[in-house]
Amino acid sequence: MWTKIVPIAAFLASASLTSGTAYATPTYAAPSTPVGGEAMGSRGLVSPAGVKKPPKSQATSYVIADVTAGQVLAAKDAHGKYLPASTLKTLTALTLIQKLDKDLKVRPSKNACNQEGSAVGLSPKATYKVDDLFKALMMSSGNDAAMALAETNGGVAKTMSDMNAEAKRLQAYDTVAKTPSGLDKPGQSSSAYDLALIARAGLANKDFFRYISTKTAKFPAPKGHYEISNHNKLLWRYEGMVGVKNGWTTKAQASFVGAATRGGHTIVVSIMRHQGGFWDEVAELLDWGFSVRGKAAPVGTLVDPLPEAQAAPQQAGSAPATKVTPAAQPPMLDTAASAQSGYTRTVGSVVIGGGLLFGLIWLWYGIRRKRGKSRL
């Protein structure tokens, strides 16, 4: 039921966006030289002189950096673009933590609950706090939680726009997000350097830090709760480990970004395209980072985020958007929506939008006509 009649001009403006929504993304120009310094453009190993070289790693690409000082201590193919797998969830979390109320309750859609790959086990019959979904995302690597969060944020398209804008703001220009979960999709990419930048930004956010460093937590279920645990094995095995995220798909192979703090300094290690069994290697790379920090010249820098870009101005006269979480959707509409293809959704939006538009124009015309007669 309509509780407010939107002015025709406003409705026309908003209706024109319904059939083909475009989300404004701040534009940042990528630099012509490698981000973080010339040495970051090397495809081979780059390490400082005067100290022992980093331990060998089977990773195709990696970065060891002092987050506190903003220095890259060693790198191998730092800007090589590879499939990120679930390490992309670091960008999902960092982006959406800033946009979603963690106390908001959400009932996930069937689409979210049926995501392939790793899952925390969401049920469309239960409601979850956004805070719970972030725990599921970063602790259990839940692809179902990633989709539920994206839908709560306004849908996958909007979330991808938000994530890619955040990546550019961080100067993570190698990163292109196509899915909120990190599941492989053509055109999706990141780099070891970018994962270090994203992790550094995340570590500065208290909620992000809380999610990645939590070892175990109670998770709600339709009846009661169950316990989930963090997939990062180094939280139990490495002194000073604070988290961040691991990932794996058949195409991406293993990827990981992790951070540890000792003596007031945090070292981050990010690896990409590893065949697996990387936990001991990462521990050795972290040890090396702590041992050379402050004793050798860095080979690069972790650049700072760009200033916040002003959002694109809202079209004049357009009505403010109303946010509806999946939990607020009637079951019948939820079922119908899950059965639609992209084509039927588009056609349905056009038909329904056109019908409403015609009805409002006719109503407006009738009111004008009636008022005209009363003046005669």
Rank of each mutant, 00 (worst) to 15 (best):
R293S: 14
T266H: 10
S318M: 14
A311G: 15
A321Y: 07
V268A: 15
A260W: 07
H274Y: 14
V269F: 09
S255W: 01
A321W: 06
I271S: 06
S291N: 01
G289C: 03
G300K: 12
Q310V: 06
T250K: 15
A309G: 06
S270V: 05
R262H: 07
L302W: 13
Q275F: 04
Q310H: 04
E281R: 12
A309K: 15
A283H: 13
F278Q: 13
V269H: 07
L286M: 14
W279P: 01
K295D: 11
A312W: 13
W248C: 12
A283S: 14
R273W: 02
T250F: 02
E281G: 03
H265I: 13
A316I: 03
E281S: 05
I267H: 10
E281K: 08
D287S: 06
K251T: 10
G247R: 08
P305E: 12
A283K: 12
A260G: 04
S318A: 15
Q253Y: 06
F256V: 00
L285W: 08
H265Y: 06
R273G: 10
L285C: 12
A319Y: 09
W288M: 03
P305Q: 10
A311P: 12
A316C: 01
V292T: 01
A254L: 10
K251A: 13
P320L: 04
G294W: 05
A311D: 10
P307L: 00
V299S: 11
A296P: 11
H274M: 08
K245A: 05
Q253E: 15
I271P: 04
H274R: 00
F256P: 02
I271G: 01
M272T: 11
Q314F: 00
D280W: 10
P305G: 07
V299K: 07
H265M: 10
A316M: 02
G289K: 06
A312V: 02
P313Q: 08
G247M: 08
W279R: 11
P313A: 11
S318E: 14
T250N: 15
Q310D: 14
T301P: 04
V257D: 03
V292G: 00
G289E: 12
N246V: 11
K251S: 10
I267L: 09
L285N: 13
T266N: 12
A259F: 05
P320E: 02
A296C: 09
H274G: 06
M272R: 02
A316G: 01
S291L: 00
L285T: 10
I271N: 01
D304R: 14
